[in-house]
Simulated scan of single mutants.
Amino acid sequence: MDPLDQPTVGLPGDVRMPLLGFGTWQATGEAGYAAVLAALDAGYRHIDTATMYGNEAEVGRAIQDSGLRREDVFVTTKLPPERVGRERETIEASLRALGMDHVDLWLIHWPPSAPSDSIPMWRELLAARDENLARAVGVSNYGTAQIDELIQATEENPAVNQIRWGPSLYDRQRHAEHRNRGVVLEGYSPFKTTDLADPVLTRIAAAHDVSPAQVVLRWHIDHEIVVIPKSVTPERIRVNADIWHFSLTAGEMRDIDALAG
């Protein structure tokens, strides 16, 4: 599949976010640079980083060296919540490190330890978006009630909530709560919480002649949940991106959903 034809989900402001992304947590230094370059070469067009990952410079250099146009790569970074009051200098530092004039998505990495800081931080993200430093803004690791607080205070929904997700964590109600609020659910650590040797996954993988890991990624995509697998192994990076030649049946989706018990 042409990477530009990969499925996307719409965010406010006519922003399109690819459903498959590449996570870069713990991918630092030259190994991080090489992993991002390998991911872009394998067809990923969505790269996820964060201030706290300490790899924004490597991510930016890899995107530049890939030869791809900036507008063809969706870039997310995240604000550490202890930077309350320093949001603007943090996004400016991220952009300098990335070598970009904007990111596509900027997230609050997790709720601040002082709950009263959440709304002021959210207002600063909205201001950064309005100044075109980020095309869309959202949150990460937020509960539904915490999202509702932001919406009630500002009448602005986070575009995205990035949370730990996978078949064993599937929560139909939580998924619906995001959809009902117009918040895109983005899942991280899809394999960390998943038993890839589970008979349900191995059976479905065999039926499609793919790996259980590919089944897990396709399950996210078929639920229209953004997923960001991470690896620094070129072969695994390539295989994880090769999920467009099959899709899961309704029965297979139900069987995987049921792994959450």
Rank of each mutant, 00 (worst) to 15 (best):
8 T>I: 09
9 V>C: 06
10 G>Q: 13
14 D>V: 01
14 D>L: 03
19 L>I: 10
21 G>N: 12
23 G>I: 04
29 G>R: 08
32 G>A: 10
33 Y>E: 05
44 Y>Q: 02
50 A>M: 03
50 A>V: 06
51 T>Y: 15
57 A>I: 09
57 A>N: 02
58 E>R: 02
58 E>I: 00
60 G>L: 03
64 Q>S: 14
66 S>R: 09
75 V>D: 03
81 P>S: 12
82 E>A: 14
83 R>V: 00
83 R>T: 08
84 V>S: 13
87 E>M: 06
94 S>N: 09
96 R>H: 15
97 A>D: 14
99 G>P: 11
106 W>K: 00
115 P>L: 06
118 S>G: 12
119 I>W: 00
121 M>D: 08
126 L>G: 01
126 L>N: 10
131 E>H: 13
144 T>C: 02
148 D>G: 00
155 E>R: 13
162 Q>T: 10
173 Q>N: 12
177 E>F: 09
178 H>F: 04
179 R>N: 08
188 Y>I: 03
188 Y>C: 01
192 K>E: 14
194 T>A: 05
195 D>C: 01
196 L>H: 06
196 L>S: 08
208 H>P: 05
216 V>S: 03
222 D>G: 09
226 V>D: 05
226 V>N: 01
231 S>D: 08
236 R>F: 06
240 N>W: 05
240 N>Y: 04
241 A>C: 11
242 D>S: 14
244 W>Y: 14
250 A>N: 12
